[in-house]
Nucleic acid binder design. Structure first.
Lengths: 169, 169
DNA sequence: AGACTATACTTGACATGCGAACTATCTCCA
DNA sequence: TGGAGATAGTTCGCATGTCAAGTATAGTCT
């Protein structure tokens, strides 16, 4: 509307083309935001297709990975939450499901009885090891179109965006 | 596990630092994927904080924007869905809420009575105009830490990732 | 015309993200 | 000691993503 000509050039492969949006984005920042969220959504679904055959969601997979990273000392519930991709309060239910499925064990902590420590079970570890190669492949498939230097650049740009959002928060 | 040394250097500001993960990512692709999804999540929550005071969700805001882009001809339900960031089938319910709130109007199409065309109402347009400046600010705040050239680079990298994922799908 | 298939939603069931309220502990400090 | 406040989880209500099944309408073939 403001720029006059509606049918301006549309970069092929761009979100604007993908979304068939007739009105271009108002600002580059806006385009970047939408592109970022859409790309994340597509990637997330690709990951889901990999892990769901094993009966877990991407969020659950994430929790299992975090617990594997924690090692045999386990990790308290809220620490797990901090490390998740999504920051939700749904961590309790997620752990409920994982415990029910036998991939996770939970125990009240001794010195501080408020805490509940989660541990990865052997089944959980086995599941992760079964998924590792496929998840790795999916990641490589997604990022494979970029060179190593470009992946580094991407990560660095995203890190800076998050830092900015945090400080602003 | 495979790489041996756990306490390698942790880039400050990186997802690895933010997530306090003791075990570094296995591959750069993996780090990029997690970083991408986490950044998107943070950005999405930032957007939510902007639009929720007006009583709508980010997804609803997105639909309203799409309908504004469609102009007075409106847009059929499934076309709206294609243009959303998330590709879900929840579009009907989203439109239900928006219609209930008076921001959207729906009509059966004349030539093809299967289609339901959605239109932005004046209230919807007014809501968007009320939100535009704040959303714009939030976007600028998020991307403001990057130079114009960096924003362009980011968008181009993300576009390529999505293209790769699509072809692979 | 009548049947078969495709299209455009719509609905239902379930998982999950999110904020807010609630419970159980723990800590601190008078 | 005992009460206020912080901390760790849990639970609730609601919105939404996802898949699968259902409904109405179009188009197509015979």
């Amino acid at each position: 509307m403001s720029s006059g000509d509606a049918a301006a050039q549309v970069r092929p492969g761009s979100v604007q083309a993908e979304i068939r949006q007739s009105v271009p984005f108002r600002t580059p920042a806006e385009e970047a935001g939408v592109t970022l969220m859409r790309t994340s959504s597509v990637l997330s679904r690709a990951m889901a297709r990999v892990v769901e055959p094993e009966g877990i969601s991407v969020a659950q997979y994430n929790v299992l990975r975090i617990l594997r990273g924690a090692g045999k000392n386990g990790m308290p519930t809220l620490s797990i939450r901090e490390r998740m991709i999504e920051e939700g309060a749904s961590i309790t239910r997620l752990l409920d499901k994982l415990e029910e499925a036998g991939y996770v064990r939970r125990e009240r902590c001794r010195p501080d009885r408020r805490q509940v420590i989660g541990y990865l079970t052997d089944e959980g570890r086995a599941l992760l090891e079964r998924l590792d190669p496929m998840v790795g492949e999916a990641g490589e498939a997604a990022m494979g179109v970029l060179s190593a230097a470009e992946v580094t650049t991407l990560v660095s740009l995203l890190d800076r965006i998050r830092c900015g959002l945090r400080g602003d928060d």
